[in-house]
């Protein structure tokens, strides 16, 4: 147990559920570190999750308020929740790549379009790993997985010159960053900026799945070897979009709009 986990995580869940050597727990801790550095109190954060490895690892670990949504729908739930919470309460969502970029993409894009005040942390293990290792749209092209025994061949959003983060940027996200979990301090500092954004932020953290991606795609269970591959992760990393403050936050704009309606009614 570290100081961070004792401070922020529920005792019975602090150990986490990820496989030994997995990069998921270090990624989870990065989020705690960012919160700690910002000095945000437990009471001011509501923590939501999806399902899969990231959901199992992070759900109900936060000592404060927490929820898990149905697969891919947590962005819609957060949209409703945002209306009910005061502006000073932060919503952090830890979700998987399948949750955000495939099954939930419709809701994610609309959440970005509305500039809903949430921080989406995509804990990207490059595939569907909790179900045993099938390819997703962030799996590097050509990878062998349980559902691509001859290597993936479909064009996806993490290769062929395409990048899912461009789609999210065009949808209106006001802060976007991508890192591998190995990028230490840079990850934490991007998360800090993301959480401070009153509007919609997305931080993708790519992390090594040793049990499936390592074994199937990289052909090794050797943890240092798997991590070495991530040192040369091929897509652009760092802060990829920062237009914080350029558009009004959703619930804020909504309240302003309602005020206008009421005033208009009075004027009539």
């Amino acid at each position: 147990m570290t100081e961070l986990t004792t401070k922020y995580l529920r005792d019975e869940k602090a150990r986490g559920t990820s496989c030994p050597g997995c990069g998921l727990r270090p990624a989870h801790l990065k989020v705690l570190e960012a919160i700690d550095r910002l000095g945000i109190s437990q009471a001011d954060i509501v923590w939501g999750t999806g399902i899969g490895c990231s959901g199992r690892q992070t759900y109900a670990t936060w000592k404060g308020d927490t929820f898990a949504g149905t697969h891919g729908r947590v962005y819609a739930m957060a949209t409703g929740l945002r209306l009910a919470l005061p502006p000073n309460k932060k919503i952090i969502l830890t979700v998987g790549d399948g949750d955000a970029y495939t099954i939930g993409l419709q809701h994610l894009l609309n959440c970005a379009r509305r500039n809903v005040g949430v921080t989406v942390v995509v804990l990207d293990n490059l595939g569907y790993q909790s179900t045993g290792g099938q390819y997703s749209i962030t799996t590097p092209e050509g990878s062998v997985t349980d559902s691509s025994p001859r290597g993936t061949w479909e064009q996806n959003w993490a290769g062929s010159g395409l990048d899912i983060l461009n789609v999210i940027k065009e949808a209106g996200a006001t802060f976007i960053a991508r890192h591998t979990v190995l990028q230490g301090d840079a990850v934490v500092s991007s998360l800090e900026k993301a959480i401070q954004n009153p509007g919609f932020s997305l931080v993708q953290i790519v992390y090594p799945c040793v049990s499936h991606f390592g074994v199937q795609a990289l052909g090794t269970r050797n943890i240092p070897q798997v991590y070495t591959w991530f040192e040369s992760y091929p897509l652009a990393t760092g802060i990829l979009q920062d237009s914080i403050g350029s558009r009004p936050e959703f619930s804020d704009a909504f309240r302003q709009q309602n005020k206008k309606v009421k005033k208009g009614n009075q004027d009539v």
Partner: peptide, 26 residues
Amino acid sequence: PEEDGFYLQAEDEIAALHICNGASLG
């Protein structure tokens, strides 16, 4: 809006009820 409430046109019905669930959760 006259009652300080919120009307949202959701992207689909899946979102519609999930938005309601999220609001109720808050």
